[in-house]
């Protein structure tokens, strides 16, 4: 369960995130939808504690994430925008490294790692060094290490960006499964079908502000457009592609 209230973050006088509030309850998928530069990545970085907000509150399972980012981080599984791997370590070693940093060890960590390798269908690549992995394989490794400590809340920054069809399907399956396990999943995307197919709640961001929030159906009703993409265009007030 993640609760965000009046979040604000400025870079050199320009508000990248401006009075953003939303709630991501357990057992549901919340989508941050918006064009490039809308503040999706900044919002997520504030949530996982690598950026400090200028104002506002963030609660992760009732932990004040601004005051105690580390306790919040222990409850978060995060796939950041850039998720680089160590080319000389194997997939399994990546999962172990993060598991150990989260305080896991021994048979618990071994079992958890095996579960993740199975869940993400990584048996064939588990003990290979990650150099030369495909984009899909790299995303799986990054996802597995982010989930090693079995976090109740999962933040994914454009998890399907640049993936092929098969990998995209795999990631969507994972998101559904995380939801079914009763976790709170927040992910960002600019892909309409993905958001409409997966999300219980959509937060539409534009220029750092929440311009609309609700289920896909409410958004369609709000804008009076039967097509979600049209609804999105109407909400964001395009032309959005020039809005870096």
């Amino acid at each position: 369960m993640i609760r965000v209230e009046h979040l604000r973050k400025q870079f050199g006088g320009i508000a990248a995130v401006d009075d953003v509030s939303f709630e991501a309850p357990d057992g549901s998928v919340t989508g941050l939808l918006g064009p490039n530069g809308a503040g999706k990545t900044t919002t997520l970085r504030l949530l996982y504690g690598l950026m400090r907000p200028d104002a506002g509150r963030i609660e992760v399972d009732e932990v004040d994430a601004v005051a105690d980012p580390q306790r919040a981080q222990a409850r978060l599984g995060v796939l950041p925008d850039v998720s680089g791997l160590y080319p000389r370590l194997t997939a399994r070693e990546h999962i172990y490294y993060y598991g150990e940093l989260q305080g896991l060890s021994g048979p618990v960590l071994a079992r958890r790692t095996d579960d993740l390798l199975r869940l993400l269908d990584m048996a064939g690549i588990a003990d290979r060094r990650t150099v030369g992995f495909s984009h899909g394989e790299r995303t799986k490794v990054a996802l597995a290490r982010a989930l090693v400590h079995d976090p109740r809340n999962v933040l994914l920054d454009e998890p399907t960006n640049g993936l092929d069809v098969m990998s995209t399907r795999a990631v969507r399956d994972i998101i559904r499964r995380l939801k079914a396990d009763g976790r709170s999943v927040v992910f960002s995307s600019h892909v309409m079908q993905e958001v409409s197919a997966l999300c219980d709640t959509i937060i539409v961001l534009a220029r750092g502000r929440v311009v609309a929030a609700g289920t896909p159906d409410t958004l369609r009703e709000q804008t009076g457009r039967p097509n979600l993409e049209d609804a999105f265009v109407a909400l964001v007030g395009l032309p959005a592609d020039g809005d870096g």
Partner: peptide, 17 residues
């Protein structure tokens, strides 16, 4: 090197001081 590979950000998300 860690930052250039893009692995610094995910590393620092781990709850370690």
């Amino acid at each position: 090197g860690e930052r250039e590979r893009g692995s610094l950000e995910p590393l620092l998300v781990n709850p370690a001081p």
